[in-house]
């Protein structure tokens, strides 16, 4: 055998090396292909949950501001609906100019029929009849600081609506139950009954023992069976060292329409006013 001239083994080694290299290159290319193929193309152009939340928040703020501006003392009552709609119209048209920078289109519309016909909000969490009936209105309240605790234009069903003040141990230190025939107040010293005169209830008045009977320490105010009542409520005082405001008159539905070249979304949300 002529070992000096036989190159078969060299060929085999080279072929093996080239096949191995080819396999590595093919695998890397296939990996890149699969990776790119599964990338969400233009996913960044879709509306993220943060953008939706921001859009809802600024619409809510604007509806509440427009309602407040048009109903503030000193404003022309007969023009309140026009003033509200004018401000909302300006908001909608200017907002679309901001969204246009991103190649997006937005339209905001609103429905004030409930307001026009004095259909007050339910005392549920979102103000709608089907909303959550039992909910926490405000927590950490210093009961003695509550300067306004008022219900007006209220209607209670026969089955009743209840307000509870619970202390930090979740123990109910004061509760008021209201139905179509009267009220029942329960506190740490006993129970009292009475009739609701007219449609206005001031819980800060002595009849309801709200301030007088709640011991020192923060309490949380809860609405229970809020679907059994509707009207206006207003609570103001100090909670966690800061002044708080809770007030609700009506529900204004707003429809937000969002468009891009690839996506179209409409969502209608009930907003309570004034807060």
């Amino acid at each position: 055998m002529d070992f000096g001239k036989n190159t078969d083994a060299q060929f085999m080694l080279l072929a093996g090396f080239i096949i191995g290299t080819g396999l590595v290159i093919t695998t890397v290319m296939l990996n890149s292909l699969l990776f790119e193929g599964n990338m969400a193309v233009e996913a960044g152009n879709e509306l993220s949950k943060d953008e939706i939340a921001n859009l809802i928040m600024i619409t809510q703020d604007e509806i509440r501001k427009a309602y407040k501006n048009s109903t503030d003392p000193g404003q022309n009552v007969s023009l309140k609906f026009n003033n509200f709609s004018n401000q909302m119209q300006n908001f909608s048209s200017n907002l679309s100019k901001i969204y246009a920078m991103y190649g997006e289109s937005i339209n905001v519309s609103w429905d004030i029929e409930r307001w026009k016909s004095n259909q007050y909000a339910n005392f549920t969490e979102n103000g709608m009849a089907g909303g959550r009936p039992d909910w926490s209105v405000v927590e950490g309240v210093n009961a003695s600081s509550v300067s306004i605790f008022r219900f007006t234009n209220t209607t209670f069903s026969i089955t009743g609506f209840r307000i509870e003040a619970r202390n930090s141990s979740n123990y109910t230190v004061w509760s008021g139950e209201f139905n179509s025939s009267g009220y029942k107040i329960t506190n740490t010293t006993g129970t009292s009954y009475g009739n609701v005169s007219g449609q206005s209830i001031d819980l800060n008045s002595t009849s309801y023992y709200f301030k007088q009977s709640i011991p020192p320490g923060p309490v949380s105010l809860y609405f229970i069976n809020g679907n059994n009542a509707y009207g206006k409520f207003q609570i103001q005082g100090t909670a966690n060292g800061r002044t708080f405001y809770r007030e609700r008159h009506f529900i204004i539905n707003s429809t937000l329409s969002y468009y891009t070249s690839r996506l179209r979304a409409n969502f209608t949300i009930p907003f309570s006013v004034p807060w």
Binding site: E62, N86, Q87, N90, F91, N94, L95, I98, M101
Partner: peptide
């Protein structure tokens, strides 16, 4: 103030 006719002042991003 882009809208002196109403209480809307401006929208910022």
């Amino acid at each position: 103030d882009i809208d002196p006719s109403s209480n809307l002042f401006n929208i910022v991003d």
